[in-house]
C-alpha cells in the first residue's frame, strides 16, 4: 500500500517535471524574453542586466533547474502585459475558479450518479429513455452554447439571474467567496450549471454502462438465486462493484472541469484563471501561459493521487499488497 502510493508520488513528480520542461521551453524559446520585458527604449546595458538577472547566459540545463526551483518557491515571474507578478494575479483569481469548479463538480456528481444508477436498473422505463436522450444532447451541445442558451433564457427573457461577472463577495483573508450571500449564489448558479451539464452527462453514461456490465455478472445472478432482496443485490453487490472504475472517471472528469472552466469563464466574464489564460494567449503573454500550464498540471497530478488513495480505500485487493 505504502509502496504503491510512493510509486504514484514519484510518477507524479516525473509528470510535473515534464510539464515544467514544456513550460520552460515555451518561456525560454518563444520570442526573446528580454525584449518582451523591457520597453523599446531600453539600452543594450539594461538588456544585458536583465539577461544576467534571468540567468539567460548560463547553460540551458542550469536555467531549467533554476526555473524549477523558482516554481517550487512560488515564483512565476512578471506578466509581459500587465507588468505585475504572475503569482499575485493567480492568487487573486484562484478562488473564483475553484469555487466555480467545486460547485459544478458537486452538482454533476449529485445529479449524474443517481441518474446513471436509475437508468441502469430500469433500462426499459420511460424516465431512463429521457435520461439517455438528454445525455446524448448533453455531449452534443458545446459548453459555450449551453452557456449562451442559459443566459438568453434566465437573464434576457426571464431576468432572474445576472449573466456577467461575480458579485456578492465576502472576503475571508486573501480568499474571496461568493458562497456566503444570496447575491453571490445568483451570480454563480448559471456558470456552474453550464459547466456541470457536460460532466454530468459523461458521469451518467459511465455509471450506467458500468452498472449494466456488473449486473450481468455471475455473482449477481448467484446473489439473486440465493433469494437476497433486490435492494441488497442492487446496492450492496451491484453498485459497490461498479464504483471502482466510476471513481477514476469522476476524478479525471473533475480535472477537466478546470479546463472547461476556460470556456465558461469567457462566456460569463467570470474573473477566474481560465479567463486569465485566454487573455494570455490573445496577447502572447508567455509567463502567464506557462504558469497556467503548471497550475493545471499540478491540479491533475494531485487529483490523480487522490483517486489512487480513494482506490485503496474502496478496493481491498490493493490494501493487501
Amino acid at each position: 500500500m505504502l509502496k504503491f502510493l510512493l510509486q504514484r508520488i514519484v510518477q507524479g513528480i516525473v509528470v510535473m517535471l515534464v510539464v515544467a520542461f514544456v513550460a520552460f521551453c515555451i518561456f525560454r524559446f518563444l520570442g526573446d524574453p528580454v525584449n518582451n520585458m523591457v520597453g523599446d527604449s531600453a539600452t543594450e546595458e539594461e538588456k544585458e542586466q536583465i539577461r544576467q538577472q534571468l540567468g539567460l547566459d548560463e547553460p540551458v540545463a542550469m536555467q531549467y533547474l533554476k526555473f524549477v526551483s523558482n516554481i517550487a518557491q512560488g515564483e512565476f515571474g512578471t506578466s509581459y502585459r500587465t507588468r505585475t507578478s504572475v503569482i499575485e494575479q493567480m492568487k487573486e483569481r484562484l478562488p473564483a475558479t475553484l469555487e466555480l469548479s467545486f460547485i459544478s463538480g458537486m452538482l454533476s456528481i449529485l445529479l449524474g450518479i443517481p441518474m446513471g444508477i436509475y437508468s441502469a436498473l430500469h433500462p426499459k422505463s420511460w424516465l431512463s429513455k429521457q435520461f439517455l436522450v438528454g445525455s446524448l444532447m448533453g455531449i452534443s451541445i458545446p459548453t459555450f452554447l449551453t452557456g449562451l442558451l442559459l443566459i438568453y433564457l434566465f437573464s434576457v427573457v426571464l431576468g432572474w439571474f445576472p449573466s456577467q461577472g461575480r458579485g456578492g463577495l465576502v472576503e475571508l483573508g486573501w480568499w474571496t467567496t461568493s458562497l456566503l450571500t444570496v447575491k453571490g449564489w445568483s451570480y454563480i448558479i448559471l456558470p456552474a450549471l453550464t459547466l456541470c451539464i457536460y460532466q454530468m452527462t459523461l458521469i451518467t453514461r459511465m455509471v450506467r454502462a458500468e452498472m449494466i456490465e456488473v449486473m450481468r455478472t455471475d455473482y449477481i445472478k448467484f446473489a439473486k438465486a440465493r433469494g437476497l432482496p433486490d435492494r441488497i443485490v442492487q446496492y450492496r453487490h451491484g453498485l459497490k462493484n461498479s464504483l471502482v472504475p466510476v471513481i477514476t472517471i469522476i476524478g479525471l472528469q473533475l480535472g477537466s472541469v478546470v479546463a472547461f472552466s476556460i470556456i465558461t469563464e469567457t462566456v460569463f466574464n467570470w474573473p477566474g484563471l481560465g479567463q486569465m489564460f485566454i487573455q494570455s494567449i490573445e496577447f502572447v503573454d508567455i509567463p502567464v501561459m506557462s504558469a497556467y500550464l503548471i497550475f493545471v498540471g499540478a491540479f491533475f497530478v494531485i487529483l490523480n493521487l487522490l483517486v489512487d488513495i480513494a482506490y485503496a480505500f474502496i478496493d481491498p485487493r490493493l490494501r493487501v499488497h
Binding site: V15, F260, I286
Partner: peptide, 25 residues
C-alpha cells in the same frame, strides 16, 4: 498517458498559443 491526462481542448489551446507566439498576430 501524460497527454491523455490533459483535456483535448487545453492541448489545442496551447498548440494554438505556441504557434501564435512563433508567427505573430
Amino acid at each position: 498517458d501524460i497527454q491523455l491526462s490533459f483535456p483535448a481542448i487545453l492541448v489545442a489551446l496551447l498548440v494554438n498559443g505556441i504557434v501564435k507566439a512563433v508567427l505573430g498576430n
